[in-house]
Amino acid sequence: MRRGPHPALAALTVLVFLFLLGPLVIIIGASLSDTSFLTFPPRGLTLDWYQNVFEISAFRRTMVTSFTLATFGTLFSLLLGIPAAYALARYRVQLPRFLANVYVLPVLIPEIVLGFSLMKSVAIGAGVPVMASLLIGHALLVLPYCVRVVGASLNGFDFSVEEAAVSLGCPRWRAFFTVVLPNIKAGVIAAFILAFITSLNDVSVSIFLTGPGVSTLPIQLLAHMEQFFDPTIASVSVLLMGVTVAVMAVIERTLGLTFLTK
């Protein structure tokens, strides 16, 4: 039998994981309390606050906005990101090396600077409507995920298979859809889902681009928190955690969660 970690180290690790999960458990507890203020442990149990989430029109509206934005922003980003990732993997020799780094610039530039600059130049400067500005901002925000995750899949793809298809008489464009795409499906799904959750949770870019009338769920949550401190926020948070669980299930099915440690 192998020797395990030092007991003190093991104890410290237990504490770290309690620290990581404890607050989330507290939110779940608080969302069930029948008090009108946030408290943990909950006094009496009720699901009223969940019902309340859907009764507040601002939450209903921003939920729809956020999911629409995350879906279309991510699709838009994938639409541009997949060809780019394909070009980077397939035509390594023909493209300059720095190009791969250009696509991950949105990670390097602080999100809040991106949000502010987009508001200044695109939303106000160029007069682009709120929803379109948000779409551009979110597509940019998630582009690095799309290019990197799809790229990781493509790097594991043997392009001689595509050449085989072409040699058998399949046109290039069709070879991409019938041979390449099915083989990188896991990567595309994982990219979508990672990008989706990133977009859904975004604050720093959206905060500058939302305006009266159009807002996203996290921004609405922030606004709500400044006025009310009731368990409704906890209920929204728990619903968002539910989305996280779904997202993790998809990642586990596609690339495996250990992908995130690489």
Partner: peptide
């Protein structure tokens, strides 16, 4: 470790308000 990472910043910060 992944679960909190994929849960939003607002939710995670809110926990500390509570």
């Amino acid at each position: 470790a992944v679960f909190p990472l994929l849960t939003g910043v607002v939710v995670r910060s809110f926990a500390w308000l509570v």
